[in-house]
Design a protein around this nucleic acid. Structure first.
Lengths: 136, 136
DNA sequence: CTTGACCCTCAAGTTACTTGAAGGTTTACG
DNA sequence: CGTAAACCTTCAAGTAACTTGAGGGTCAAG
C-alpha cells in the first residue's frame, strides 16, 4: 500500500498541514505512524477519515460534535439514528443563525438607506444617524 | 450631574462589567475617571457612548471597525459618507455569510432527509450515509 | 553535494470576550 | 457602630479553532 507525508494528505483533503497536526493534538484524529526520522506517514484510509471530518466541519459541526460522529461510525449499531439527531440539531442551529443574519441584513440595509437619503447632500458636519445610534 | 459605577453602566447598556473593562483595555472606550478608591466612575454620556458601541457590535462590526466609527463621530466633517461606506461593506459581508449559510441549510436538510429515507427501518448495522461522508 | 521544498516541535497570536482567584470598598441592616 | 452582602479592583488563564513564526532537521533532484 502506498503511503505519503502530511503535505500530500493535506492537499488531498484540502486542509493545511498545521490543521491536521492540530486535529491530531486535540484527539480528533488518532496519532499518525511515524517514519524513522519522525515524519508522519499516512495512506488512503487517512484521506477518507480526514475528508469525513472536513465534511462535518463544513456542515458547521464543532470539533466536539465531530468527535461524537467519529465515535458513532466506530460503533455502527445505533450510529444511524444518533447521527440523524446530531444533524437535525445542527440544522436547527443553522436556521436560528439564518434568522439572526437576515434580521441583521435588513437593519444594515436600512442603515445604509438612511445614510443615502438623509446625508445625500454630501458630508455634512452633523450626521444625524451617527447621533441616533448612541441614543437608547 | 449624577454618576454611578460600572455595574450600573453595565445594566443600562446591557453589557457585563468585564466587557466594559475589556473595551477600555483595548482602547475602544477611553479610560474612565476613578474615585479615590480606584473604582471607575461613569455618567449618562458614557451610557450613550457604550450604547453606540453595542449597537455597532450588534450590526456585526468588528472591534476595529467600531473604533473607526467612533473616530468618525469625533471628526464630523467627513463622517457621514465614511460611515456609509463602512456600513455598506458590512452589509456585503453579511450577504456573503447569508449565502453560505443558506447553502449549508440545504445540505443539512438533504443530510437529515437521507437519514430519514435510507435508514428509516431503524438503527441498521451499516449506515450508508456515514460511509458516504468519508468518500471524496 | 548542495539547494530548495518539505517536515518537526513548541510558543505565541487571533477575536471578543468569559471566568476565576485573591483581595479592597460600599452600602444596608440591625 | 459593626458586619455581612454586594460590589469593585487587578491579573491570569480559558474559550474555539485554528494560524503564524522561530529554529532546526530531512528528503529528492540535479
Amino acid at each position: 500500500m502506498h503511503t505519503f507525508r502530511i503535505g500530500t494528505l493535506a492537499s488531498r483533503a484540502a486542509l493545511n498541514p498545521p490543521t491536521i497536526r492540530y486535529y491530531e493534538e486535540v484527539g480528533l484524529l488518532r496519532k499518525a505512524r511515524r517514519m524513522g526520522s519522525g515524519q508522519r506517514v499516512y495512506d488512503n484510509t487517512d484521506v477518507e477519515r480526514l475528508t469525513f471530518i472536513k465534511r462535518c466541519r463544513e456542515f458547521g459541526f464543532s470539533i466536539e460534535q465531530v468527535k461524537q460522529l467519529v465515535a458513532l461510525t466506530a460503533d455502527p449499531s445505533s450510529a444511524c439514528m444518533d447521527a440523524r439527531t446530531l444533524a437535525a440539531e445542527q440544522l436547527e442551529q443553522v436556521r436560528v443563525q439564518l434568522g439572526e443574519l437576515r434580521a441583521l441584513e435588513q437593519s444594515l440595509e436600512e442603515l445604509v438607506g438612511s445614510f443615502d437619503s438623509r446625508c445625500a447632500g454630501g458630508p455634512g458636519p452633523d450626521c444625524v444617524i451617527l447621533g441616533d445610534l448612541a441614543r437608547s
